[in-house]
Design a protein around this nucleic acid. Structure first.
Lengths: 181, 181
DNA sequence: ATCCGCATGTAAGTGGTTACATGATTCG
DNA sequence: CGAATCATGTAACCACTTACATGCGGAT
């Protein structure tokens, strides 16, 4: 459901091919949703079946044909209905916290290795998001509202990583204190 | 994968039935992993097939039989292997942020309704976690390490909700400012 | 009487991942 | 000459959700 509506959302911004959507997910949506290409092509097919999108074959000049997808009126209605629907509870799934929960029997070296790997990942992701933020102009809520909301979601991604890194540091400090005692 | 290892983790703490595991997920694991009962029974079956768990039928006295699952030695090995494996990158999937990203065309009332609903959910979840934290004794990293790690993961859940609520307030404030201007 | 908790599962559908498969162009 | 990028997809599998199905015992 969410994936199909995100795709409709992108198509409402501009018509795209499956490949364009892959890049849109890899760049602009990377911090709140991941989508595989097999999934994207499958879902595009379903959106066309449902009448929420239609296709236009653009013959490739010295390149493969591009199958450009456009949102239909009914597609825009479905997108809007999803946007305003009461949010359902989110099912958390955090594999790293899951490990920490059961990691009591690991020795210090193993725990430090886990934490350091996670710190490296989180730092890299946060820095990538920071790079995007410094590169783009910050819209104001009164002016370009869509742009402002998108920049707020980017902020949220950065904040979440920062919060995470602080917590990882606290866990590391707790283990360090134990070692010295 | 992660689900099966979390189940092994719980079974390593004490032997349980599928029903016991449902409650374990609903209470102690709720803030980092959600699991459906259909999934739990299916995964238990697979763990037995793989030789990571075995079953003991305890006839019910005035109650249905209980099928108690125990971890095997190979099960403990598999759990440990999962704990120390290098963490793979986490695929983010946040349906609320996804909506916000595309919510530029909604009017103020619709946006406020979305945000308020999310604030209510996040507050309720955070308060539930806080209640658990105040009810339990806080272990020290040097003493009960398993307990300390578990309490740290609980902290992480609370922090994440707090961070989220701050962000939601900032979005609300931004929209409010726009309204007044 | 009816609902809630205990305790077990199955069936069907949707969502997500991995591997397979093809072929042209462009850059180093 | 080889690797990367553009561009399309399929097949098989695994993970997750929802609805269906049963039956006892205790509480309101």
């Amino acid at each position: 459901m969410t994936l199909s509506r995100i795709i409709l959302g992108f198509l409402a911004l501009r018509s795209m091919t499956g490949y364009d959507l892959m890049r849109a997910f890899a760049t602009s949506a990377a911090y709140f949703w991941h989508a595989d290409k097999a999934q994207i092509y499958r879902t595009l097919g379903r959106l066309v079946e449902e009448g929420f999108a239609c296709t236009e074959v653009v013959p490739g000049t010295n390149a493969p044909d591009r199958i450009v997808h456009h949102v239909t009126g009914r597609g825009r209605d479905a997108l809007r209905a999803w946007l305003v629907a009461p949010p359902t509870q989110q099912a958390p799934r955090d594999p790293f916290i899951a490990r920490m929960f059961f990691a009591g029997e690991l020795n210090d070296d193993e725990l430090f290795a886990l934490i350091d790997a996670r710190v490296a990942d989180a730092t890299a992701e946060r820095d990538a998001l920071l790079a995007i933020r410094t590169k783009t102009v910050r819209p104001t809520p009164g002016g370009d509202r869509s742009g402002w909301l998108r920049s707020m979601t980017l902020d949220q991604g950065i904040r979440e990583h920062d919060e995470n890194l602080e917590w990882l540091a606290a866990v590391r400090a707790g283990l360090g204190a134990e070692q010295r005692s």
